[in-house]
Amino acid sequence: MSVALSLQQRSPAIAVSRPGIEELFTSCVDFVWRNLYQLGVAEVDLEDQTQEVFLIAHRRYASWNGGHPRAWLYAIARRCASAYRRRGHRRYELCVYDVPENGMEPDPSERFDVNELDRALDGLEEGKRAVFILFEIEELPMREVAAAVGCPVQTAYARLYAARRELARALSEE
């Protein structure tokens, strides 16, 4: 006997102008990956969590208005990373058959540089860090940055300038 599952229902009419999840994945997978990393997801879990972001995006697709796709994905990634960090206390140890591949392209020298920036970014308050990353590294327009972090555009500018000052100071001290 078969039981009808509500899960089988597809989301209804989908606007033509909105990019599909597949398209979003193709264009934004690197963006999501980088931001999850910056949001505190461990390297070994980045693949899982990135996948999770697109699964959630798929589930919430019907409620998305189609604007600022990266800001939308960032908001999902932020919630994912937050939930991930809350679970952290239960995952200190992992039994694995094989040493997990961390999915990063191997280049020790680049890694050293990137880690230096990571350390400097870690010293920033979360709001400033998010604005700096989205504007300077991800090159989002400031309006989209503000939408992603959920603050007025002027506030985003103020955070950006503060972040720049603090980073310049931190890097010059090293």
Binding site: I21, F25, V29, D30, W33, R34, Y37, L46, E47, T50, Q51, F54, L55, H58, E101, G103, M104, E105, E110, D113, V114, E116, L117, A120, E136, I137, E138, R164, L167, A168, L171
Partner: peptide
């Protein structure tokens, strides 16, 4: 800072990782 920013943009999943995610999704 500019150099570090540019390098940091190159951080991305390996092609293997991306294809695994695509296949699973």
């Amino acid at each position: 800072l500019q150099r570090l920013i540019r390098r940091s943009r190159r951080r991305r999943p390996s092609t293997d990782a991306t294809s695994r995610m695509a296949a699973r999704l």
